[in-house]
């Protein structure tokens, strides 16, 4: 009898292992364990070498609104993080976006490979090497593809520029990172008329990257190669159409049809109408007005003269 119970027990225990509780916890349930601490908004520490505050916080609201919302934390991070305190060896954990993003066909349209090669040629990588990673600009826990989906260009600008300004708006951070005391952005951009308007309407990368990229360019250029010629944007063939307005134009074309999109485009920002027929039309209207005015003037002068003659 004893033996039977023992066997039964063994069977039950074994079956529990073979058919584990069939309901696998959802990603959200799983992540909850990590969020017990990591949802604290100020979780972090002051880095001993740089003095910069390193945040370890992942805000659940941001995460579940990000592109990575379906993932479990350990999809990217080591499974060893499930133990607490986290093992010391994990401090050197080295994550890289392309581990996941390289070969997957569904990511093809984002051109991760060309992003990688652009990044390798960018000024950040050239100056700082492997010390500079994707995560220095993009927080994977709140990353949300932006330019492609956002209808409001100004929002895109705000979101994107925030990424750059996190470091570049603070001269002491830049000094810590580059060893150079650089002038503030307002000083280095003082040649630009209406600086504040530009800040709000153009992304840093629109002038500071090479424009010939399939997606959003990641080839950040050294400052002497940045766009400094007004006409490059404020013209018919504005480079902004290749970058900032690329997705907006495409979207609008899809939504409102080609002609409408071309006519209703937010053309003032770029500075010149890009439709030949509209240009022609406005010249014709202008000509007609001019002719009408001069005819009217001549007639008035004639009739006045006639009145004088009568008197």
């Amino acid at each position: 009898m004893k033996k039977f119970i023992f066997t039964l027990n063994a069977v039950i225990i074994l079956s529990l292992h073979i058919f584990p509780n069939s309901k696998k916890p959802s990603a959200e349930e799983f992540n909850q364990q990590c969020f017990r601490c990591h949802s604290m908004a100020t979780l972090g520490y002051k880095d001993e070498s740089s003095g910069i505050i390193k945040s370890l916080a992942v805000l659940p609201h941001d995460f579940y609104n990000s592109n990575h919302k379906e993932l479990e934390c350990i999809d990217c991070h080591s499974r060893d993080f499930t133990t607490f305190p986290h093992p010391a060896k994990l401090k050197t954990e080295n994550l890289y976006c392309l581990y996941c993003h390289k070969d997957e066909p569904k990511f093809q349209k984002y051109h991760f490979q060309s992003i990688e090669s652009e990044f390798k040629q960018s000024v950040h990588y050239k100056k700082m090497g492997d010390k500079f990673t994707c995560f220095d600009c993009h927080d994977p826990h709140s990353f949300k593809i932006n330019a492609r989906v956002n209808r409001d260009v100004k929002e895109t600008v705000l979101y994107d520029n925030h990424i750059c300004l996190k470091c570049h708006d603070n001269t002491s951070t830049i000094k810590d990172l580059s060893g150079q005391l650089l002038p503030t952005l307002n000083v280095s951009h003082s040649w630009l008329p209406h600086i504040d308007l530009h800040w709000k309407s153009v992304r840093c990368i629109d002038c500071h990257t090479s424009p010939n990229a399939p997606g959003v360019s990641h080839l950040i250029l050294p400052k002497d190669q940045a766009v400094k010629n007004c006409v490059e944007c404020h013209s018919k063939n504005s480079i902004l159409l290749q970058s900032l307005y690329k997705f907006q134009t495409k979207q609008e074309r899809d939504r409102e049809g080609f002609i409408n999109a071309v006519i209703l485009n937010n053309s003032y920002v770029i500075g010149a109408t890009r439709n030949y027929y509209l240009n022609l039309l406005s010249f014709i209207i202008f000509g007609i007005v001019l002719v009408a005015l001069s005819v009217h003037g001549i007639l008035r002068w004639k009739s006045h003269k006639g009145n004088l003659d009568e008197k």
């Binding site: 601490c37 908004a41 100020t42 979780l43 972090g44 520490y45 505050i53 370890l56 916080a57 305190p85």
Partner: peptide
């Protein structure tokens, strides 16, 4: 700053986490 605790590696992170609440 928002990361005032600096002493013990494990503790400082959690203590700093409390600062938000």
């Amino acid at each position: 700053t928002s990361a005032p605790h600096t002493k013990n590696e494990l503790e400082r992170v959690i203590l700093n986490g409390h600062v938000a609440r």
